[in-house]
Design a protein around this nucleic acid. Sequence first.
DNA 1: TAGATTAAGGTCAAAGATGGTCAAAGTCAA
DNA 2: TTGACTTTGACCATCTTTGACCTTAATCTA
Lengths: 149, 149
Amino acid sequence: MRVSDIIAGFIDDMLNQLGGTAELQRAELATRFNCVPSQINYVISTRFSPEHGYIVESRRGGGGFIRITRVEMEPEKLIMHTVNAIGDEIDINSCSALIANLLQGGAISELQARLMLSATGNNALRPARVEQRDTLRASIFKQMLINTL
Amino acid sequence: MRVSDIIAGFIDDMLNQLGGTAELQRAELATRFNCVPSQINYVISTRFSPEHGYIVESRRGGGGFIRITRVEMEPEKLIMHTVNAIGDEIDINSCSALIANLLQGGAISELQARLMLSATGNNALRPARVEQRDTLRASIFKQMLINTL
DNA sequence: TAGATTAAGGTCAAAGATGGTCAAAGTCAA
DNA sequence: TTGACTTTGACCATCTTTGACCTTAATCTA
């Protein structure tokens, strides 16, 4: 089991227990999970990014902290917001994160999420040149979202 | 006896024992059967492909894995049939027809049908060159169908 | 209160750990 | 002999873990 996943799970639990916002201490967490402090940053940037639907604030110095807040929105707004966030191209990671976020926010069902992931995955886009995949992905993704409303 | 068959059998056993889904480590399997790692990919792509009724997911890096999931039931037959009927390219009319067919046959819901039409429509594929759209459409469509199972 | 000290957190790149791809070489049956 | 399937291996892509070095904030101390 990856340490990063364990840490992510821990943070997730905190968020659930504390109603969507958690304040943690980097060094303390690092000690608890027996890893270097920067791994906490790694976990946050790969799993609690804005694309995943979180806001992260922090403060250094004595009494420093990292605060992670889960953002919630109404389904329709979330979808619109997502459409606007896509732009003309989007890489597969950002795309997956956005879909996971839509699912988690209740804007789409698990089935819809699965279909969206399928249609925007590298397997589906394989026939296209690599340089073009991100553009196509954005187009397809937006089209699906729009027709979901 | 071919090594590939032995490996395939092993994976099959795993799937049976674990209720249809198995998670394996490429290097570990390769060591166990005394073959090169890429042979595992070969076995998976020739015997556990989507066309055979499996979903394959994987992850690289520390703690990486390959997960194979077997999917099977009744309306699924219709879907598999469709997947096999698609081929390497499909024009938008045939595609729409197949989707309508699946919907009418109760293999997919209206919601799914809508997403599939969105993802395979000309709007979504606009970024791609015209000569390439049919290929892409086939790829995307198949991928979506497979992950519907 | 300026400066030093201490207590956090941030960045980034290297090293490590997996899996993926592709084409060449090998095997075998029709 | 040929064509389909199998086996190998060199090289590639991606994700995780670590650690050295940097920045910022709060608190002492002279």
